[in-house]
Design a protein around this nucleic acid. Structure first.
Length: 489
RNA sequence: CGGGGUGUAGCGUAGCCCGGUCAUCGCGUCUGCUUUGGGAGCAGAAGGUCGCAAGUUCGAAUCUUGCCACCCCGACCA
C-alpha cells in the first residue's frame, strides 16, 4: 500500500493531487496558479515533445519562436478572439522598479509606465499573423507551416495542476495556405496526428470530433478536437485543431497574389496540445499504488533492484546482471539499476508510485538458480524468469504492456459510454459518469439549457457519427445524429 | 467578486472556546548499532519570528482590531 496516497475511489481529486506530488511529477509554486514541473515529470513531457515534434516535422512543419509579449493593439484586431481571451490576460504596465522612499522595499516606478501595455500571450495567433502580413505577398510564399514550443499565460480563476494552470507549456501550430481546401486538410491531418499520439504513445483512447459553436475556439470557423475519458467518468479535451478560415487574414490584412494575378486573403489553421496531456496521462491509467506509465513515455522503462546483505553480494549480483543491462540498453530500453541505500521494500513501493512499467528484482536466492523476478506495473503481476534470455523477454514485455494499458483504457471507455434516448435516462446515466451518446436539436439554446440543468456539455460531435433520425434529448425536436455529452474538466 | 474556512518545524497536525511549565504528536532529516525478498527496529540529535502589525494584560499561539496569504463552494474557464 502506497504511503499517504488516498484511495482513488474515495476522493478522486485528492488522489490525483497527492499522486502528482508523491510521484515527484510537479508541485504548486508560490505564484498563484502556477506549477513547478519537477525533473521526473519534465522527463515525461520531454518524451511527449519529442514524439510530437517528429510527427510535425515528418509532415513538413518547422519550429519557430515568437515573443512572449503581445502589444495590446494586436489582440483587439479580431473581435471574437478578444472576447474569448480578454478576461484572462496578464497585462504588463510598467518596465521598472525602484526602492521605496519610505523604506518599504521595492515598488513599481510610476515614471516607468508603458505607453502601450503589453499582454503576456494567452496564445500567439495575433503575434504570428502580424508577421505573416510581412512575410506573405505571393502564392509562392505559401504554405507556411509553423510550430512553436512555448509557454502561455491564461489567468484562470481556478487552477488545477497540469489540467488548468495559469501558465502552461504547449506547442502551437500556425499555418497559412492559399486555398480553403488545403487549410481544411491541414486541420484534419493535425487532428489525426493528435489522435495517433494519444492512442499509440499515451495509450489513451480518444474520440475525434467537432466542437459545437458554443465550444469553438475564439476566432475559428471550425474546431476539431480529441476527447478522452478519465477514470472518474469526466471528459478531458486533450487537443484541438482549428480551421480559422480567413478570419485572421482579414483582421491582420494578410493577402497574397494568386497565379492568376488576383489578390486574395490567406486561409489559416492553428492547433495545440499542452501540459494538460500530462494530466490526461496520469488520470487515464493510474491506480491506488500510484502512477502507471505506458512504456513509450516512461523515463525509466525497467528498474532493477538488487537484494543483498553486504557489498560482496552486491558485487556478485552486479556481475551476474550486467550482461542483461547491457543487452537491454542495446535494445534501446532505458534501465535503472538502483543501488541506492534504501531497503528493497521501499524501492518496490517507490517505483510503483512512479509508474515504472517493469521491475526486476535480483537476489542471490534466485540468481543461484539462474532466476530473476520480473514484475509488471500495469497489472501488478510478477513471475520468476530465467536470467538467460531475460533481456529479449523484457523488451517484448514492454510492447505488451503498452498494448495492455491501451486495451484497459479502451475497455473502460466502452463500458462508460452509453446511448441514451430519454431525458430521465440522460440524468441517471450522467450521475454514473462517462460519455452519453444522445440526440441534440443543434441549437446553442438547448446546449446551454442542458449545461445549466446538469453541468454536462457537448464534448464533440464525433467525426464518425452515423446518420440516424432521432429526437433531441431535451426538446424532442428532430435530430439527424448523436453527439457526445459528458461532464468535463 | 460573493459565501465559508484555515494559517503553529521541510510536510501533516494538537493546543485556542476557558490567557500562566503548551509550544504537542506523527512523518521526514541526521548519527550510531542491528537489519535488508513489499515502504525496518531501537537509541540519540537537529529543526520554531506559533502568517504580519498594533492593542488589552504582570503575562498572548490563545482575547481585540487591522492587514496579508492560502484553501473549499459559487461565478469564470476553446
Amino acid at each position: 500500500m502506497a504511503k499517504g496516497l488516498p484511495l482513488r475511489s474515495e476522493n478522486y481529486s485528492e488522489w490525483y493531487n497527492e499522486l502528482v506530488k508523491n510521484a515527484d511529477l510537479a508541485e504548486n509554486s508560490d505564484v498563484r496558479g502556477c506549477m513547478i514541473i519537477k525533473p521526473y515529470g519534465y522527463a515525461i513531457w520531454e518524451k511527449m515533445q519529442r514524439a510530437l515534434d517528429d510527427m510535425f516535422k515528418e509532415t513538413g512543419h518547422s519550429n519557430a519562436y515568437f515573443p512572449l509579449f503581445i502589444p495590446k493593439s494586436y489582440l483587439s484586431k479580431e473581435a471574437s478572439h478578444v472576447d474569448g481571451f480578454a478576461k484572462e490576460c496578464a497585462v504588463i504596465t510598467h518596465y521598472r522598479l525602484k526602492n521605496d522612499e519610505n523604506g518599504n522595499g521595492v515598488v513599481v516606478d510610476p515614471e516607468a509606465k508603458l505607453e502601450e501595455e503589453l499582454i503576456v500571450r494567452p496564445t500567439s495567433e495575433t503575434a504570428i499573423w502580424s508577421s505573416y502580413k510581412k512575410w506573405i505577398q505571393s502564392y509562392r510564399d505559401l504554405p507556411i507551416l509553423l510550430n512553436q514550443w512555448a509557454n502561455v499565460v491564461r489567468w484562470e480563476m481556478r487552477t488545477r495542476i497540469f489540467l488548468r494552470t495559469s501558465e502552461f507549456l504547449w506547442q502551437e501550430g500556425h499555418t497559412a495556405h492559399a486555398t480553403k481546401k488545403e487549410a481544411v486538410e491541414e486541420t484534419s491531418m493535425i487532428l489525426d496526428i493528435y489522435g495517433k499520439f494519444a492512442e499509440e504513445w499515451m495509450a489513451v483512447p480518444v474520440v475525434k470530433g467537432r466542437k459545437t459553436a458554443n465550444e469553438r475556439f475564439a476566432g475559428a470557423k471550425d474546431t476539431l478536437c480529441i476527447e478522452a475519458l478519465m477514470q472518474d467518468g469526466k471528459a478531458l479535451q486533450a487537443g484541438t485543431s482549428h480551421f480559422l478560415g480567413q478570419n485572421f487574414a482579414k483582421a491582420f490584412d494578410v493577402k497574397f497574389q494568386t497565379k492568376e494575378g488576383k489578390l486574395e486573403h490567406v486561409w489559416g489553421t492553428s492547433w495545440g496540445v499542452s501540459t494538460r496531456l500530462m494530466g490526461a496521462l496520469i488520470m487515464a491509467h493510474s491506480d491506488d499504488q500510484g502512477l502507471v506509465l505506458p512504456p513509450k513515455l516512461a523515463p525509466i522503462q525497467v528498474v532493477i533492484i538488487p537484494i543483498y546483505k553486504n557489498d560482496e553480494q552486491l558485487d556478485q549480483i552486479t556481475e551476474l546482471i550486467q550482461p542483461m543491462i547491457n543487452e537491454l540498453k542495446a535494445n534501446g530500453v532505458s534501465v535503472k539499476f538502483d543501488i541506492s541505500d534504501q531497503r528493497p521494500g521501499w524501492k518496490f513501493a517507490e517505483y510503483e508510485l512512479k509508474g515504472v512499467p517493469v521491475r526486476v528484482a535480483v537476489g542471490m536466492r534466485d540468481l543461484e538458480k539462474g532466476l530473476i523476478e520480473v514484475a509488471r506495473r500495469d497489472n501488478l503481476s510478477k513471475e520468476q524468469k530465467p536470467l538467460e534470455g531475460a533481456s529479449a523477454y523484457i523488451t517484448v514485455l514492454l510492447d505488451e504492456i503498452q498494448v495492455a494499458i491501451y486495451a484497459k483504457a479502451l475497455n473502460f471507455r466502452t463500458e462508460s459510454t452509453h446511448e441514451v434516448d430519454t431525458w430521465e435516462e440522460f440524468q441517471t446515466k450522467l450521475e454514473q459518469g462517462g460519455f452519453l451518446s444522445a440526440h441534440w436539436d443543434g441549437t446553442s439554446e438547448t446546449e446551454d439549457k442542458i449545461k445549466e440543468l446538469t453541468k454536462a456539455t457537448i464534448r464533440c460531435i464525433p467525426l464518425d457519427a452515423e446518420k440516424e433520425e432521432g429526437k433531441c434529448i431535451l426538446t424532442g425536436n428532430p435530430s439527424s445524429k448523436r453527439v457526445l455529452f459528458a461532464k468535463a474538466y
